[in-house]
């Protein structure tokens, strides 16, 4: 398929699918089970993004370096997450601690101890 003469899919059908997926994500949240909510919400977001990128942005019809560039940006995002997440999410590391987190943990332990006795 030429990049200059794009095939236009049935946009109304894609819109209906996207609206249906939106309904699924909202319904998933109303179920009230956390795992179901997260899977439906973020799973739906990924499917919606794929549908739009493929059918509306025509990423498949663009030059090959375009999807590679997009993939590189996404990998950079994952790299940032994997590099920064341990510092953000852990209370202590090899040569560092988070005093506020440790104080909060001690207070939590004390209140638990008091509640038991």
């Amino acid at each position: 398929m030429s990049e200059e003469h794009m095939h236009h899919p049935n946009y109304l059908k894609i819109w209906a699918m996207l609206v249906g997926l939106l309904v699924v994500s909202v319904a998933g949240a109303m179920v009230g089970i956390r795992v179901v909510t997260l899977i439906t919400a973020f799973g739906v977001a990924c499917v919606q993004a794929y549908l739009v990128a493929k059918n509306c942005m025509h990423i498949g019809a663009a030059r090959r370096f375009v999807p590679y560039l997009v993939a590189t940006a996404l990998v950079l995002m994952l790299l940032f997450f994997s590099g920064a997440a341990p510092d953000v999410m852990k209370p202590a590391g090899v040569n560092w601690v988070k005093p506020a987190w440790q104080e909060a943990a001690v207070e939590h332990d004390v209140s638990l101890h008091e509640a038991r006795h």
């Binding site: 994500s25 949240a29 909510t37 919400a41 977001a45 919606q48 993004a49 739009v52 990128a53 942005m57």
Partner: peptide, 17 residues
């Protein structure tokens, strides 16, 4: 479409989770 895709992820992050 890109602005729309960003919202697809902001919506569950800020309103559903």
């Amino acid at each position: 479409y890109f602005v729309e895709i960003v919202w697809f992820f902001l919506f569950p992050l800020l309103y559903i989770a």
